[in-house]
Design a binder for these strands. Structure first.
Lengths: 212, 212
DNA sequence: AATATATTGTGAATATATTCACAGTGTTAT
DNA sequence: ATAACACTGTGAATATATTCACAATATATT
């Protein structure tokens, strides 16, 4: 089966949920339970799990450990995959705090900032480089994913450099639409648009009643 | 026409793009141009614009100013809509920096944190309250949207309080799936899952070639 | 041993979203 | 004037995603 972005998002969420259930001592789970924890339908859960080639038992449902392994085999790199972070303001620091050390196969391996005061400081084990070093460090460290956490005005320039350095996936937190070659995967996490969106739907609920 | 989440997301993006073009002195635009800036098809642009009841001219395309007004009329509240922010760590502060003052009809009107050192400090004109004041301040200020920017462990508790205080829309940055009543709109912006997702697609591109 | 039960896996039906294709429009060029 | 043009608006076709509905399965119960 062809897997879409939505499939991948759900699989990532399932894994997170499954790991926490496993840590709580659970050994197996039914599609219905997982669906309710992941806010989707049992059919979706079963289809997603089918799509990665794992199958459960009609009696015991899915074996937690095996399912987690199957999902991870499908989603993760074989080896450690390295990530670059550009921008060490409040946002960049919060990304390090939230992310670093949480996923065994992923690590922020290089951090870049323009501010001379930050350069050469070490954060959570990563040295901060000057933005000018992007072209040098990224290929050397074999990094193919980057997170942009700089102000709007600097984002496009940084993105161009990243692409030139060989980055294939960008997670963009800056509130601008980046213009990039079509073979680069971009996920936009524009904070302004996010607040506006939630505000719109909150208003709809407040003035009308329920919604989805 | 019924507007979906995707419609709303695109409309928000169009508006952002249109405003910046207008500031650049442009007075009108064609669906094709806007589509290329927003990374979608001209048909989508035209349908989205149709859905809010605005229409352009086959010769001059869309009048920038009028279109922006129509979109805003559709998306925005009549009066100022107030937003609460919970969590004043690095992430919370970056949200204030990125957001505050950028949208005329939306403002972060109250900030909450657990840390006694932060309480009563003023950030960008918002006083920071103790998290315990949520039930008191939110109804008083008539706030219906909240942003959660606390660590994973505190998020569900905060969310429960917010709902109790009357919040209808939540923008959740904490890496947990919140369990909430069905009449609350939630937008999850889980940073860990976001990095994992981009890493997955970057890897696909790196090992296979293009993708979407 | 036969029956009842709860679950998976999945073809088929439905719903939703996107794209195609073209008639209708007003402007410019001839 | 008339023809050519480039665009919008939109019905129809297509593609994608979700849900329905049920046969197949393996256990527990009588």
């Amino acid at each position: 089966m062809k897997t879409s972005e939505k499939n991948i998002e759900r699989l990532l969420l399932y894994r997170r949920i499954l790991i926490s259930l496993k840590n709580g001592g659970k050994t197996n789970i039914y599609s219905k339970q997982l669906a309710s924890l992941a806010d989707c339908t049992p059919e979706q859960v079963r289809r997603d799990i089918m799509s990665i080639g794992y199958s459960g038992s009609p009696v015991h449902g899915y074996d937690l450990k095996k399912l987690i392994n199957s999902i991870s085999e499908f989603l993760d790199a074989n080896n450690l995959q390295k990530v670059a972070l550009v921008g060490l303001g409040h946002l960049g620091r919060s990304i390090i705090d939230y992310f670093q050390g949480r996923r065994p196969k992923l690590m922020i391996a290089a951090v870049f900032d323009r501010d001379p005061d930050k350069i050469d400081r070490v954060m959570h084990g990563c040295r901060c480089y000057s933005t000018e070093k992007i072209l040098e460090v990224i290929p050397k460290e074999n990094i193919n994913v980057a997170i942009i956490a700089v102000p709007a005005s600097g984002a496009q320039g940084v993105a161009d450099l990243l692409v030139q350095a060989g980055i294939k996936g960008i997670l963009n937190y800056a509130p601008v639409k980046l213009t990039l070659p079509p073979d680069i995967y971009v996920e936009n996490r524009d904070m302004i648009l996010a607040v506006e969106k939630v505000a719109y739907f909150a208003r709809k609920i407040t003035t009308e009643g329920s919604c989805t």
